[in-house]
Design a binder for these strands. Sequence first.
DNA 1: TAGATTGTTAATCGATTAACAATC
DNA 2: TAGATTGTTAATCGATTAACAATC
Lengths: 202, 202
Amino acid sequence: MKSDIPVTSLQRLPVYLNYLKTLTSDGYISSGAIARALGMGEVLVRKDLAYTSAQGRTRVGYSCGELIAALEDYLGCNDKKKAVIIGAGELGKALLSYGGFLNYGIEIVAAFDSDSAKVGTYVGGKPIFDAKNAKEKIGELNARLAVLCVPAREAQAVADTLVDCGVMKILNFAPVLLKVKDGAIVRNIDVAASLAILSSMI
Amino acid sequence: MKSDIPVTSLQRLPVYLNYLKTLTSDGYISSGAIARALGMGEVLVRKDLAYTSAQGRTRVGYSCGELIAALEDYLGCNDKKKAVIIGAGELGKALLSYGGFLNYGIEIVAAFDSDSAKVGTYVGGKPIFDAKNAKEKIGELNARLAVLCVPAREAQAVADTLVDCGVMKILNFAPVLLKVKDGAIVRNIDVAASLAILSSMI
DNA sequence: TAGATTGTTAATCGATTAACAATC
DNA sequence: TAGATTGTTAATCGATTAACAATC
């Protein structure tokens, strides 16, 4: 099951998928070729791919098409999932217009904001609802994923509401560590910290 | 030196810093208290902090003020660094208006785009220059960091130009693995993949 | 057949955790 | 002093890499 895969491996699966999609030929590719293209060890590639339903053929390698299908299947790209964005600031609006989520079967269905000037408008064809109605609307929409784009000081309260609504998977852009109950999962992206870490490397 | 620290530790330093900044009292804090607040082991906290110039006092803990200063010093928050954003789409513009970089001493000085409708305009008080002049302007501005917000198909060419300009640290939002020469470092943020990984967890 | 490749088992490496001496 | 805490050394754990048998 999915819980068996190390997070490190799971994080590499989209990298393989993106790479394979750039290939024009629809033939076979060996783990060695993938490894060389991505600058990693070939055994690691095979181990990672073995978590999916992909099956290599000895002396031949993996069918590109089958491999893409296996990765997409494993990552749930074929299951439609609904996500909401909380906070329709610049970042929230950027994500509303971003098409990349669809590659993974994720549909951004709406955003929420407390700014009355934004409420009722549309960005990227997606409505911005009043944050006051978040609980009710998220239930109606049946969204199970959320992207948090609110200021750090509001993030914990919003996270509490989300978990309350049954949204157990939260991608958090606020530079704060959120406390959520067992079963809920938070993944953090801190853009400024990422750039600072990069800057301080070597 | 910085190269001694494991990347995993380096990545936690901003987390400590953000947490410590939320504390109102300016007294002392023990590694155990930090660990409990952040849900991690206390030995790990001490090991991480030991990479910085922070010095704990036995029976007392660490001075919050000194610890913040040590972390900021280690992360280079006191060195002014200039960064440019390549691609003034929605994401690029969101980052132009984002103030969080200043916490790490990073100043976003300009963006570049090839859309003539955007060239010459300002977002967040920062100019958008013509991508054609990137090489010259980046030299003038003396920027050493870049954030890549261009479509995946353009990312490699832009990265090549950047490295050519001496920008050796690139934060890449495009879902593609960039090939850069030795000495250049790329860090990737793939928002869609992150949400997909989150979605497929447990 | 010889050779290339997969998939698995064993070895290594690195990060985290446990144990504990030192300190005030 | 007793107790709380740091900082370090040893042990454990998990991920990556190496070795190699199986396969076509």
